[in-house]
Lab assay of single mutants.
Amino acid sequence: MEQGTVKWFNAEKGFGFIERENGDDVFVHFSAIQGDGFKSLDEGQAVTFDVEEGQRGPQAANVQKA
């Protein structure tokens, strides 16, 4: 798993971006967030995640709040 920081996340649209430790950004969809209840992330929040190849390039999977 990688570690990163939430760059931004739009809860209304259900997606955002995580900044990886290497400085690259990776797309995150709310469906990739682990846990119960409303799935959202806060700007600046530390997270761990896997990276999978999506239809439009790399995207975060198995996102967990650190």
Rank of each mutant, 00 (worst) to 15 (best):
50 D>S: 14
40 S>T: 15
10 N>V: 05
28 V>F: 14
62 N>A: 04
23 G>E: 09
55 Q>N: 12
63 V>T: 03
44 G>H: 09
6 V>T: 07
62 N>W: 05
65 K>L: 12
3 Q>F: 14
2 E>Y: 15
31 S>P: 03
29 H>S: 04
21 E>A: 14
2 E>M: 13
5 T>Q: 09
48 T>C: 08
30 F>E: 05
47 V>K: 00
34 Q>M: 13
8 W>I: 04
3 Q>V: 13
35 G>T: 10
43 E>M: 14
48 T>V: 12
55 Q>T: 14
20 R>C: 06
36 D>V: 11
54 G>R: 09
60 A>Q: 00
45 Q>R: 05
20 R>K: 09
4 G>V: 00
1 M>E: 10
3 Q>M: 12
21 E>Y: 12
42 D>H: 15
38 F>I: 08
49 F>T: 01
15 F>D: 01
29 H>R: 04
32 A>P: 01
4 G>D: 00
41 L>K: 02
36 D>M: 10
46 A>R: 15
19 E>A: 15
64 Q>P: 01
41 L>I: 05
37 G>S: 07
14 G>K: 04
10 N>K: 09
49 F>P: 00
57 G>L: 04
40 S>N: 07
28 V>H: 01
6 V>Y: 00
48 T>R: 11
56 R>W: 15
37 G>Q: 06
42 D>W: 14
63 V>H: 01
25 D>N: 10
49 F>K: 00
23 G>Q: 11
55 Q>H: 12
60 A>Y: 01
44 G>R: 07
36 D>I: 10
5 T>E: 06
39 K>C: 06
6 V>G: 01
38 F>A: 07
2 E>L: 14
30 F>R: 11
49 F>Y: 07
1 M>V: 14
45 Q>S: 08
8 W>A: 03
18 I>P: 00
11 A>P: 13
26 V>T: 04
64 Q>N: 12
6 V>N: 01
57 G>E: 03
16 G>F: 01
36 D>L: 11
34 Q>G: 08
35 G>V: 10
65 K>Q: 09
19 E>F: 14
21 E>L: 15
36 D>F: 10
64 Q>K: 12
12 E>I: 13
36 D>E: 12
57 G>S: 06
34 Q>T: 12
18 I>W: 01
45 Q>T: 11
32 A>D: 08
50 D>R: 08
21 E>T: 14
61 A>T: 13
3 Q>T: 12
63 V>R: 00
17 F>Q: 04
38 F>Q: 08
61 A>N: 08
36 D>A: 11
58 P>E: 06
11 A>Q: 13
8 W>E: 02
37 G>C: 08
25 D>Q: 11
56 R>D: 09
39 K>N: 06
26 V>Q: 01
22 N>Y: 13
14 G>A: 03
24 D>K: 15
46 A>G: 09
10 N>I: 05
16 G>Q: 00
12 E>S: 13
30 F>P: 02
24 D>P: 15
19 E>S: 15
30 F>V: 08
8 W>R: 04
34 Q>E: 09
33 I>H: 02
34 Q>D: 09
11 A>K: 15
52 E>S: 09
10 N>A: 07
20 R>F: 05
42 D>S: 14
39 K>V: 08
1 M>N: 13
7 K>S: 05
59 Q>C: 07
2 E>V: 12
16 G>I: 01
60 A>P: 01
26 V>M: 07
15 F>H: 06
35 G>P: 04
40 S>M: 09
2 E>H: 15
37 G>E: 06
39 K>M: 07
25 D>T: 11
30 F>K: 09
65 K>E: 07
25 D>A: 09
49 F>M: 05
3 Q>D: 07
24 D>A: 15
59 Q>A: 07
51 V>G: 02
23 G>D: 09
10 N>M: 05
59 Q>Y: 14
64 Q>R: 13
44 G>D: 05
63 V>M: 02
1 M>Y: 11
15 F>Y: 15
57 G>N: 05
40 S>R: 11
12 E>G: 12
7 K>I: 07
29 H>M: 05
5 T>D: 04
9 F>E: 01
65 K>A: 12
48 T>G: 04
55 Q>Y: 15
38 F>V: 09
21 E>H: 14
43 E>H: 15
56 R>A: 08
54 G>D: 06
44 G>S: 05
14 G>D: 01
15 F>G: 02
13 K>Y: 09
46 A>Y: 11
63 V>F: 00
31 S>G: 06
66 A>K: 15
1 M>L: 12
60 A>E: 00
22 N>S: 12
11 A>T: 14
65 K>H: 09
30 F>C: 07
40 S>I: 10
34 Q>P: 06
43 E>D: 10
16 G>C: 01
14 G>M: 03
19 E>Y: 15
24 D>T: 15
20 R>Y: 07
42 D>I: 14
1 M>W: 09
9 F>A: 02
50 D>Y: 14
60 A>M: 01
22 N>H: 12
23 G>K: 12
29 H>K: 03
56 R>C: 08
15 F>S: 03
4 G>S: 02
45 Q>G: 07
66 A>E: 09
35 G>E: 11
40 S>G: 08
31 S>C: 07
46 A>N: 10
24 D>Y: 11
9 F>L: 03
61 A>Y: 10
44 G>P: 02
31 S>Y: 04
49 F>W: 02
44 G>Y: 05
61 A>H: 10
33 I>Y: 03
14 G>F: 02
14 G>C: 03
53 E>G: 06
11 A>V: 12
10 N>H: 09
3 Q>A: 12
48 T>P: 01
2 E>A: 10
13 K>F: 10
58 P>H: 07
6 V>H: 01
66 A>P: 07
19 E>K: 15
11 A>F: 10
25 D>P: 08
27 F>W: 06
48 T>H: 08
18 I>R: 00
50 D>L: 11
61 A>L: 11
32 A>E: 05
8 W>D: 02
38 F>C: 09
20 R>G: 05
45 Q>H: 07
31 S>I: 05
44 G>C: 08
66 A>D: 09
48 T>E: 06
25 D>G: 05
63 V>G: 00
39 K>F: 06
1 M>D: 08
17 F>L: 05
57 G>A: 05
62 N>C: 06
14 G>Q: 03
13 K>D: 04
64 Q>A: 10
31 S>F: 05
46 A>V: 11
57 G>D: 02
31 S>Q: 07
18 I>S: 00
24 D>C: 10
52 E>R: 09
44 G>E: 04
13 K>A: 08
2 E>F: 15
43 E>T: 14
43 E>A: 15
37 G>N: 07
33 I>F: 06
35 G>D: 09
15 F>N: 03
25 D>F: 11
9 F>D: 01
38 F>K: 08
28 V>N: 00
53 E>L: 13
42 D>E: 13
62 N>Q: 05
13 K>N: 06
30 F>W: 15
16 G>K: 00
55 Q>R: 15
3 Q>L: 13
23 G>P: 02
64 Q>V: 12
46 A>I: 13
2 E>C: 10
17 F>C: 05
8 W>L: 03
18 I>A: 01
51 V>L: 11
14 G>E: 02
24 D>V: 14
